[in-house]
Design a binder for these strands. Structure first.
Lengths: 110, 110
DNA sequence: ACGGAGCGTAAGTGATAGCTTACCGTTCGT
DNA sequence: ACGAACGGTAAGCTATCACTTACGCTCCGT
């Protein structure tokens, strides 16, 4: 979660959603230098969010499901333990004028 | 997601899993001062992760489902769009069905 | 009305984190 | 084997951020 706290790092992961990319390829699509991307990739790799694969001199990175499952599992615990306390305040937690890009569905199947 | 990038802030949210708490109450369980907690709560509130409720002079904070649903929805998109590119990596974890969209992927531009 | 409890805000400080340039190792083509 | 492409690492700088103390406001009890 620390790893995704940085906007640039989230950007990298977003790009990787389209498939694996090389370091220079990523850097060309980002407003930072290539070494910066390298450093971010190291953090992401350490967090289990991306995987590395070598092809000649090129290092290809892709999204690693491991970190995503961990993140998803972490959030899942909130739905289990914290949801109980929502009931207490659920009836008055409505006042929220801070409308943003909220799908407002709130009721999704699992 | 930026809001959860800070360990202290995650700590606050963790505590709030047990139900709503006052600011001083939170500060007493954390290794930081009360104003620090206030500032963190402002960020969390701005991110739609906590709600505020006043009871006399006390400000009670609780987890806001809004931010959690948004976060969960965000991760959900990865399971939809990025899963397809896992290809040969997918077998490592994640119980999912085979996605064989592998048209030679030609990432070999030179 | 007065004093205290409970919080938010302002101002200032120190540390961390992200970015850059420079350098070096590795791999492939010719 | 030589040179270029590709990328990780080191060192250094800057800005952001989390924290602290000091102060002011609001609400309640007496």
């Amino acid at each position: 979660m620390d790893a995704l706290g940085d906007p640039t790092r989230r950007n990298v992961v977003e790009i990787l959603r389209g498939g694996e990319r090389s370091v220079g390829d990523l850097a060309s699509e980002l407003p930072v230098s290539r070494p910066a991307v390298s450093q971010h990739l190291r953090v992401l790799k350490g967090a289990g969010l991306v995987t590395e694969r070598r092809d000649g001199t090129r290092h290809l990175y892709a999204i690693d499901p491991t970190g995503l499952t961990a993140l998803r599992a972490y959030l899942e615990t909130f739905w289990d333990t914290a949801l109980g306390s929502f009931k207490e305040v659920a009836d008055r937690s409505v006042p929220d004028r801070d409308r943003r890009t909220d799908p407002a569905d709130g009721r999704r199947k699992r």
